[in-house]
Each structure stands twice: as C-alpha cells, then as structure tokens.
Amino acid sequence: MLRVRDVTSSYGDIQVLRGVSLDLGDGEIVALLGPNGHGKSTLLKAVAGVHPATGGSIELNGEEIRTEPPHRIVERGVAYIPEERYLFPDMTVFENLRLGAYTRRARERFAENLAFVYEIFPRLRERRDQACRSLSGGESRMVAIARGLMSGARVLLVDEPSIGLAPALKKDVYEAIRNINRQAGISVLLVEQEIEYALRLAERAYLLKKGTILFERPVSELDVAHVKEAYF
C-alpha cells in the first residue's frame, strides 16, 4: 500500500533522514521504533507532505506522492495525526470533525464516517459541542485521531498517540487504534516511544536510528529488551 524507498530529508543543514525504506501493507499495523530525535516524526511528516522529502520515493498504491502538497496526500487517503494534535482550539469538537471531512470525497461520506468515529470514541459524542480549548489531554488526542479518520483515510500515520497520557487513557487510545484497524481495515504506521504498547499492537516493527533503518522484524521475533538494547 505504502512504499517508502531511500527517503532523505533535512532541517536546514542537518540531515535527519539518510535514506529510509519501509513498507506498509494493506490492513497492517506497523510500528516505527527508535530513540528520540533520530527521524521517526520526520519520516511521518515527509510521507504526509508537511515536511519536504529531499530525495528517494514515496509510493501510495504504486503512485509517486513524494512531491505532492499535503492536501493532495489527504485526498489520496493518507491521514497524519501529529503528536502536537493541532486542533482548532476555538471550535467545538463537532466543528473539528466536520473540518476533518474537508475533502470532497470525505464530505460525501460524512454521516457514515461520523457514525464510525462516534462508535470508536463514544466520549466525543458527549463532548460534541464543547470547545476544543477546554478538552483534557486524552480527549484532545481522541479528537485528533477522530478528525484524521473523518477524511476517510485508508492509511493512518500516528505520531506518539500516548505521549503525556495517564496509563488508563493510554490503553483506551491503543484500544481505539486496534478497533480502527480491525473494523475498517485501515493501515496504521505508528510511531511510539513506549515499546511495550507498540509491540502489543503491531504486526511488524522497524527500528529507525540516526536517520536509517537499523532492522525490520515481525513482532513475534522481537522482545522489549532486545529493542531497548538497540536504542543505545
């Protein structure tokens, strides 16, 4: 579904990605692990088009999307859920979700997608008329994921969904991602610091270090200690 080959990217003079390749299959959950500041988020941003990939290729269903602007990539069915969430703070939960369905295709399936999103996150239905500014951290995270789903995405790029959340909430968020994947068959590329959670959810994992992929394994062949070792 998503095929990344030799992607490079930099911030100013600092090269962050030095040729990264990975694959995300249809309906798959893949974890992208690795120490902080080694390029995991940059890779998601490069795929989403919000930070330019300077070289390599990014293919979606066989079509090159590396140089497409972000809104075209959303139209093609890729939703990026940034770690920073970037909600519209002075709008209600519902208004945020409505903007999530901004593309023409998404607007046509608005009711359907909204029902699905409320099924995954029942709490958002209760909060629908509340301004996002006043939401708790966990609720904002849910809105961010839900807003991404409203675009009718087939691929979800999720950046650190559990960061800063209490353990119980972390479990909720992970449960939601699992449901999204199982019920709608949406592929998920997951960047995560908490290796335990990530490995419970994903089928395969990549380890990204110093801007390159160190290794790629099925989760069944990995254990937490092994991965942690590779961090240093």
């Binding site: 100013g12 919000v50 930070h51 330019p52």
Partner: peptide, 11 residues
C-alpha cells in the same frame, strides 16, 4: 536557500 520556514509550511 535555507530550510523552508515561510508562512505556508508547518514550521
């Protein structure tokens, strides 16, 4: 010529 830091990028 440096990094894209304009009003149209995320940064």
């Amino acid at each position: 010529a440096a990094a894209p830091a304009g009003r149209t990028s995320e940064e």
